[in-house]
Design a protein around this nucleic acid. Structure first.
Length: 428
RNA sequence: GGAGAAGUCGCCUAGCUGGUCGAGGGCGCAUGAUUGGAAAUCAUGUAAACGUUAACGCGUUUCGAGGGUUCGAAUCCCUCCUUCUCCGCCA
């Protein structure tokens, strides 16, 4: 959420930023709503001040035995006016809040202008493409051949875009999760195992709601009223960022660094027909997420570090990767700046996103009300929140299967995973 | 799921026969005094948001959340949320 003040201060700059995102926003309307609200609020506060002053005098007057009938009649009128105004202000508040919650974050100046992911800026590459003296198979064929992935039975049991992992496949998924978490905790991230369901407030806090409700899986919560339905988390970012909602850090606690494994659930609304086979686009997938809370000064440097912490895995797994900066048109709703790490997928003959690392500036912090103080006397300021995948597990497994496949149909296990796998090869 | 109790300023707690209560006390924290330094002691201060002001300050709101009664609500009424205790069920 943006501060209405920053919008009002320089509406043209705000309009420009929205244009870069290909968003059309009615700025004049929101400014006029806010002006109305301010006028009414000022007037009502004066009324309340009077009400308070008179109310304080009443017990004194009563003690003196004076007649208060006339005053009560007068105050009744004032009270009615206050109630009326309060109701009007509430409606304006709701309209303004609804508007602000639907406005995306302002991209940082460093973010290049672009329409969509084709305009993302490649910053660097690592590794060399694997050389095959045979025609490599896509990972879903490898999974079938080795009997380690079973989407057909998952379709029977649940539906499309779900998978059973079996045997060495299941073990590989688990080994990758542990490898990621172990590495992050060694690098100073505190491990979190979060709830996989969250409430509406949390989904709003990180920016998934109110605009993208159709992307989430919603659950009826029988113990609550209908207003408080649960949502399956689309990423651990949601519970872990909201872990500190409505809290105030002291500056010495920052940056605060967390890593969390979770299953992630996405409806993939609007991507019918895309990446239908394999592990790339599932309704349920595993991910290890990194989340940081920082001061505004630390934000950008911590994003670099976070990205390095994610990127390291691709190097440890000797996978070919590409590092890009997302353009304005491809930037997520809450993000001010995003790096994507992409891994080479031989079957697709292109790079596939395996991690997305973003700085949200104070956008999420405003929504979730997360602040810090520089010292005991300082006023509370909003933190910056950052997060990034460290990294997507299913896509890592897919990349390993494809990049490490052998002519005989077996898959070599990357060095760093061998002890966890108890083998150096998956064979038929 | 059944029965009961409770949610107050970072923490603990007073207030709950409606009015000088945005709220007393203790702990914690900050500043100062004392000390060679510390502990202890003493003094002063101690939330957030919004508005207003050059600033000191002043105003409004917030006693789990929302609504109601009233001239006026932490205090009365209703709904919801959360926590605790006992019983039942359960990985």
């Amino acid at each position: 959420m943006l501060d209405i003040k920053t919008i009002k201060q320089d509406p043209e700059k705000f309009k420009e930023a929205m244009k870069k995102r290909n968003k059309d926003v009615n700025v004049d309307e929101i400014i006029s709503l806010d002006d109305k609200r301010r006028t009414l609020l000022f007037e009502t506060e004066k009324c309340k001040a009077e009400q308070n002053t008179v109310s304080k005098k009443i017990p004194v007057l009563k003690k003196e035995g004076q007649d208060t009938t006339a005053i009560f009649a007068e105050m009744k009128e004032l009270s009615d006016k206050i109630k009326e105004n309060d109701a009007a202000i509430k409606i304006l508040d709701e309209q303004i809040k609804k508007f602000l919650l639907s406005v995306p974050n302002i991209p940082l100046d460093i973010v290049p202008y672009g329409k969509d992911s084709d305009d993302n800026l490649e910053l660097r590459k690592f590794g060399t493409p694997p050389q095959f003296d045979f025609s490599p198979l896509p990972h879903w064929d490898i999974g079938k051949l080795l009997n380690i992935l079973d989407p057909e039975r998952a379709a029977k049991v649940t539906g499309s875009r779900f998978h059973f992992y079996k045997g060495a496949g299941a073990r590989l998924e688990r080994a990758v999760i542990n490898f990621f978490l172990d590495t992050h905790t060694k690098n100073g991230y505190t491990e979190i195992f979060p709830p996989f369901m969250v409430n509406r407030k949390s989904m709003t806090g990180t920016g998934q709601l109110p605009k993208f409700e159709e992307d989430a899986f919603k659950l009826y919560n029988p113990e609550n009223n209908p207003e408080n339905d649960y949502f399956l988390i689309p990423t651990a970012e949601v519970p872990v960022t909201n872990l500190h909602a409505d809290e105030i850090f002291s500056e010495s606690e920052l940056p605060k660094k967390y890593c969390a494994y979770s299953a992630c659930f996405r409806s993939e609304a609007g991507s019918a027909g895309r990446d239908q086979r394999g592990l790339i686009r599932q309704h349920q997938f595993n991910k290890v997420e990194l989340v940081k809370f920082t001061t505004p000064e630390q934000g950008l440097e911590e994003l670099e570090k976070l990205t390095n912490d994610a990127e390291r895995f691709l190097q440890l797994l000797s996978l070919l990767e590409r590092f890009v900066r997302r353009c304005t048109g491809d930037l997520g709703f809450s993000s001010a700046e995003t790096y994507d790490i992409e891994v080479w997928m031989p079957s697709y003959n292109r790079y596939v996103e395996i991690s997305s690392c973003s700085c949200f500036t104070d956008f999420q912090a405003r929504r979730a009300n997360i602040k810090f103080k520089r010292d005991a006397k300082d006023k509370a300021r909003y933190v910056y929140t950052l997060n990034g995948s460290g990294v997507a597990v299913g896509r890592t497994v897919a990349a390993i299967l494809e990049n490490y496949q052998n002519k005989d149909g077996s898959v070599t296990i990357p060095e760093v995973l061998r002890s966890a796998m108890g083998t150096d090869k998956i064979e038929k």
